[in-house]
Amino acid sequence: MTVNYGLYVPKQSGIHSLHPLTKLAYLGFCLAVSWVIPGTWTPYLVFLLGIVPLSALGQVLPNILSGAFKAVLPFAISLFVVQGFFWPEGTVLQQIGPFSLKEEGLFFAIRGAGRILMAVSTFLLLSYTTRPDELTLALGQLGVPNSIAYVILSTLQIIPRFQTKATTILDAQRSRGLETEGSLRVRARALLPLVLPLLLSSIVDIEERAIALEVRAFGRQGPKTSLLVLHDTPWQRLLRWLLLLAALGVIVWRIYAALAPRFLS
């Protein structure tokens, strides 16, 4: 088995070698712009101008497109149905039996799907081009607690082991004659002999792993070092600050624009 880095797609690219926080700042900026600036097509424009070129540079464009499509489609469909047809009142575009498709609802759904598209694609772009341990290291250097980094990293590695164990228990119980296929009642009855051993053995595992972590000084306070070294440059640091300021600026401007008319009148 090779090293499992979760969603990470190992490639040699300028995007891959950027500092994780630079990517995070850029994606945060894109997300802020797409969510905050009004306009039905704003998220799609940001996606085309902000996400697609970077994905291409990072050689993960096909992954982003297929991943985003799969994740967004169910949301888009339900948004379209719920908002398009059940918008309280507005311009009726099309009457289908008792249901009427309304323009305002349709535009709302398009914008909503665009926002979800942006949320999904920024997450995917970060995950595809950033090793999880580099991301958690960068977050740790920002002051995010160690235990959160541990949860993120160990989930990637221990969940697959958990699945292997579940399969082992399933096979073991089947070989002792447990019926796991058939009617709902048969399946329901099989649940307890499967879940109980998995749960109990996992509790023992967790206890032992907690001990192993303590032995390795995980609970120690004070400065920590890292074998992994993040590559950072002055211009990236500058860029991060600029992006952060720009994102804040966009949000502040939007709040001002929304509130100003009320105060001025």
Partner: peptide
Amino acid sequence: ANPFNQITGARFTVREEIAFGLENLGVPL
């Protein structure tokens, strides 16, 4: 006794796994 449960799960390679304790102790690179 259990070798599997002594692997932290927070590191991706054998080298990094060994480094985990040293990182927590703050040993210089």
